[in-house]
Amino acid sequence: MSEQNGHAHTIVGPGVYVAILFALLAGTVLTVWASFVDLGFWNPIIALAIATTKATLVLLYFMHVKYSTKLTKLAIAGGVFLFLTLVSMTLADYISRAWGSW
């Protein structure tokens, strides 16, 4: 029964939820609009950036991470880090295969 700090449970109210809802809807509109504009190299990056922003909003407010314990935050950070490791280290192989003719 360690880590019982911060034991008051935070209740996030409808105001925040409504605000987040509109932010998410705005993000959706924005990302669809951005995809119809030719930004070349930046198109996928912007799409992913908007998606990440939306996901972060959902995480922080709908999923209450903002009010969670450090442990939860750490666990999520660790999980995301490992997810990125899986993707990036696998991609590193595929990208660097083309670097030289071995």
Binding site: T28, T31, V32, A34, S35, F36, V37, D38, N43, P44, A47, L48, I50, A51, K54, A55, V58, L59, F62
Partner: peptide, 18 residues
């Protein structure tokens, strides 16, 4: 599930619409 969809939407639907 919502978060997963947010990424799926960006990756699968919006590759290149212009």
């Amino acid at each position: 599930i919502d978060i997963v969809w947010i990424y799926l939407f960006a990756l699968l639907y919006l590759i290149s619409r212009h």
